[in-house]
Design a binder for these strands. Structure first.
Lengths: 204, 204
DNA sequence: TAGGTTCCTATCCTTTCGGATAGTTATATG
DNA sequence: CATATAACTATCCGAAAGGATAGGAACCTA
């Protein structure tokens, strides 16, 4: 089984090579950037799997991945990254990548994943892919006072100012004032926009 | 490698056994229901992987899976199903399953998946797991006319009636009428509720 | 051709919204 | 103590929204 590893970090590249070669039945080639990888793909025999680091020179986001997938023989190309988000991983798989391998993967799992992908399957860490992309404690919520949040909650339930006032035991003018402040803080032009923005942000 | 296959469909069970045994290095046992599977787990040597059909007798949803995972030696248990939804698959993996295998998987992929899971990795088909659970052509959208949908789209963008009228080259009173109809059809009390309901339904 | 449905336009009127402005109370914070 | 901020109340006014009602045009169908 022949694997090409392209990553600009010597340490990671060498470690990966050591692990894979230790398996006995895996032969490795390496490159330090996308250009080097493409040269090897052109000149060498077919690889069973090509691993590309997302952040190495020449990659330019997922462009380098797509270019490599489009190269001769339709070889299998997987994305390797340390920090990539779930969105990047999904886009890579969507673009036809053989898989997505986080650098945080245990060595044993990484070898299994490489073998799995070389066999023609698509790999991605389940827990990584199913993780809910939790919005990092929306900055919006922090800008709002308790009262404003209460009013906003009422708004996202489609209530009128009068209803919100009754529920919170306030007068209607007060609710209106909070509304005005909310529009300013949420950068909304009217209550509908404010409600949509609040929902979009995942509040309530 | 020893694999236990539990499924109440004789045909599928036998087919799967044939495929796996043909690999040479895989030894299989079978059971027709959960009870039979548990008996084999108790009496036989340790299995490298246990495949449980979701719909066979005794399973009772994911309960049977959880029971089996909790049995001796912490053996690796995967869920096998033909119709399961993405939600079921996620719950199974959450509960500690070794993987989720749709019965629609090509034989070659199924074998690869079995081997992969037996090696200690977690498997699920990427495309299946990342598929967006698309609401089945929202019944709402069908009740609305073209115009109403256009107006609703404007509403979900937080526009005023006047703006919507200008964009669609209608008069404001007409937009208002469509709004009224929308409220009735969407069961909304006001524009904010209508906008939220439309967003909730995944329209636009 | 008559009857029905859908879509559009329009007017009248009331309620609600939203902005501007002004002021009170309580609680931090320097 | 002075100041700032948050929370609340209040009034005025124009703009927007929403309900009721009426009618016209296009299209399908009996």
């Amino acid at each position: 089984m022949r694997v090409l590893i392209a990553d600009d970090h010597d340490l990671l590249r060498d470690t990966l090579v050591l692990f894979l070669e230790a398996q006995g039945d895996i032969e490795t080639c390496t490159a330090g950037d996308l250009f080097g990888a493409h040269k090897l793909i052109d000149s060498e025999a077919r690889f069973d799997l090509i691993l590309l680091d997302l952040n190495m020179p020449g990659m330019n986001g997922l462009d380098g991945l797509k270019q490599t997938i489009a190269m001769k023989d339709g070889q299998r190309v997987a994305l390797l990254s340390g920090e990539a988000t779930k969105e990047i991983a999904e886009q890579a798989l969507e673009a036809g990548a053989a898989g997505f391998v986080p650098k945080t993967l245990p060595a044993k799992s990484m070898i299994n994943a490489v073998k799995f992908m070389a066999m023609g399957e698509q790999y991605a860490p389940i827990d990584f892919m199913t993780a809910v992309e939790e919005s990092p404690e929306h900055p919006l919520a922090q800008k709002l006072t308790q009262r404003e949040l209460q009013v906003l909650k009422g708004l996202t339930e489609g209530k009128s100012n009068k209803e919100i006032a009754r529920d919170l035991e306030l007068t209607e003018p007060t609710v209106k004032l909070h509304m005005k402040t909310l529009y300013r803080k949420l950068d909304a032009a009217n209550r509908t926009q404010a409600a949509l923005i609040a929902r979009e942000a995942g509040l309530f």
